[in-house]
Amino acid sequence: MTHLARLATDAAQLDAGLAALLLQAEQLSQTVAAGEHGRRRPGVGDDFWQFRPFTTGVDTQKSVDWRRSARADQLYVRTYEWKTAQSLALSVDASANMHDQGNPSKWMVSAVLATALAGAAVRAGERVGSLDHRVPVGHGHGQIARLMTALSQQSDGLDQGHRLVAKSKAAIFSDFLGDLGSTHRALETAHDRQVRGILVQVLNRDEVGFAFRGPVVFADPGGMLRHETQGAHDLRDRYLQRLADRFDQLDQMAAAAGWRVERVVTDQSMLTAVTRLHHLLSQGQGV
């Protein structure tokens, strides 16, 4: 309870600083759900689109706009712009790697950012859900609570890419320090379904800075891997080189799928990070 309570509190504070997140969408998924994205064609919506002449057999008399028709000789029908909602699928890596000793942990940062984005999107009338379909995309603030619970479960849903709503948006939070294979496959699937999104790489200060000295045994949080060294400082340059390589690899992978990579360090301001993510998702080029 406290776990979720803190997540809810932090996300709510962060969300309060955000404008409603209207997902940037040059391609809209084919859904019937009403939303805020105008389809630039007549359909179900609130905004006026055009008047067009009454077509017998197609239009009913109820649809005649009598005020406009009175100014002309023929009957006109008022049509509205078809507006649909965009979907945002979220995934947070809840593996042991993400639950580090930091305060906040990488998982907490990821979950807070994801929840904040979800909250902002919901306010804009968009639909949010989890990537693993534990929480199907949907409207309303109830989604947020369900999403929070789902995010804490240990499944990033990267293998569920084929169930993504086509042309929807996605944000995947992880440290991307493990095997990149599943990420690569997920990106390929997403690419096939024309889903665009962001890979948010959340790292902590140790992983970015590697300020270790002396003899150290490095153990991964899962307890599977160990690496022992007598002089950790000596490894720093080589480690940072490998990290940079990993960044490049991820960038290339994302670029190939039309995704963007955003990096967040846990000790940085979360507001800055969420603002960047908000920007990328709302106006980002190529996303």
Binding site: D175, A219, L235, Y239
Partner: peptide
């Protein structure tokens, strides 16, 4: 040696 929990161990392997 002290033990440190470090998620990026895969990057260190082999050094």
């Amino acid at each position: 040696p002290k033990t440190r929990v470090f998620a990026a161990v895969p990057l260190l392997l082999g050094l």
